[in-house]
Design a protein around this nucleic acid. Structure first.
Lengths: 230, 230
DNA sequence: GTCTATAACGAGATAGAC
DNA sequence: GTCTATCTCGTTATAGAC
């Protein structure tokens, strides 16, 4: 029984992977809004209704692609963080930022899927939250490491933001002082602003040497969360 | 002949405006990807194919909406800048940032249209460049004003970025030192990173008091381009 | 029980004849 | 400007193969 179920499960997993792969390919050609179950089925030599054995609806297929994309980005960031564990936090911060940018340039359509306009009529289920948080946790970890070492700039907060920053720190960065949590969230969003602008063409005719521009901007982002300039 | 053509041109312009208005309304309801020429036509009591007289394709209608959106945002920013012409540049900077955020929250689908994922298969024509640049010019103007006054922080640049920053300054901010041009471009992208994250739901469960969070982040963005803290 | 194939519904997008 | 014909889409019901 276990072997039979194992074989079936394996076959099912293979078909599921093939569907996602074909869907990803189609995502790169037509975009998320035009992701078509029928075209995916066609590419696999199946019939559209057969896909419903694997994904109850088009939205569920989209959700799977979104989670995969977040995980792929998160894993890339984690690898960049772990590549040089002895490097000082500011250097690791820049390395992670560059890894995010590199992943985005290598997977533009998956980036658009998770950080671009929301797909109309699609509401992301809670399942995506954990995967989405991975990249944030990497950034938090680097700043946390810096706070355990010496030489960290303390960041003043206006009273207006005090309570909110304390809540942030308590919620997802308990090792961090509130004065670091709020700027970290801002830097997180700003990092993706830089990446998104490059990817979506806003830098056309504006920024030429994007590598150098990004490295410098990422370094200054690191400073903005209290990491000393390297 | 000129009167006949003038009347015809006027009628054509009126219908064109009505189409765009209906399309904008639908954009706000369904999103850009599902912009349906059919529904627009239905709302106007026309038949879908009749629209092709005014917009040769859905893409041309999209282009018109994109230009209108950039112009609407640009005008909002300009009004915020001009509302308090005597305020010091850091305050005007924050006012413009908040105007951008306010416009985005009030026009989420139009924001997604111009700063979200590019519509697949759609290449923005050069016609959009001028409108897209408006908001950038507002930001540049504020920093330029600050540079003509006293008390501006000089921003060091790594040699790696020196040439690029000088090209940037020469291209679109001739009154600005290169050390200000590059951070300004970065701040421009980062501003839209903050706005986009809030609008597209990345701040859900992360940032609660978004107004206070944004004001503080915008102020620090201003500092990053050399505007003193207010 | 698990899967695939057939057929169909209602909808939108578009080309072309009139 | 209008009307029709033809395409694709997501989705479901159903029937049958393994």
């Amino acid at each position: 029984m276990s072997t039979a179920q194992g074989a079936r499960a394996r076959a099912r997993q293979e078909v599921t992977a093939a569907i996602k792969e074909a869907a990803r390919r189609q995502l790169a050609e037509e975009g998320a809004a035009k992701l078509s179950l029928r075209a995916v089925a066609r590419e696999l030599g199946m019939v559209s209704s057969a896909l419903y054995r694997y994904f109850p609806s088009r939205d569920d297929l989209l959700t799977a692609l979104i989670i995969d994309a977040y995980d792929s980005l998160g894993e890339t960031a984690e690898r960049a963080r772990d590549a040089t564990p002895d490097a000082p936090p500011p250097d690791r911060w820049i390395a992670v930022c560059e890894a995010v940018r590199g992943w985005a340039l290598a997977h533009p359509h998956e980036y658009a899927l998770i950080y671009g306009s929301p797909v109309p009529g699609y509401a992301a289920p809670d399942t995506t939250v954990r995967a989405a948080a991975r990249i944030g946790l990497v950034l938090i970890g680097i700043v946390r490491d810096a706070h355990q070492g010496p030489g960290l700039t303390d960041l003043p907060l206006p009273t207006e933001l005090r309570a909110e920053a304390e809540r942030m720190a308590a919620d997802f960065a308990p090792d961090l002082p509130p004065g670091a949590a709020a700027p970290l969230v801002a830097a997180w969003a700003q990092l993706f602003g830089l990446v998104g602008f490059e990817l979506f063409g806003q830098f056309n005719r504006v920024v030429e040497d994007r590598e150098a521009f990004f490295r410098h901007a990422a370094g200054r982002l690191g400073e903005s969360v209290g990491l000393p300039r390297s």
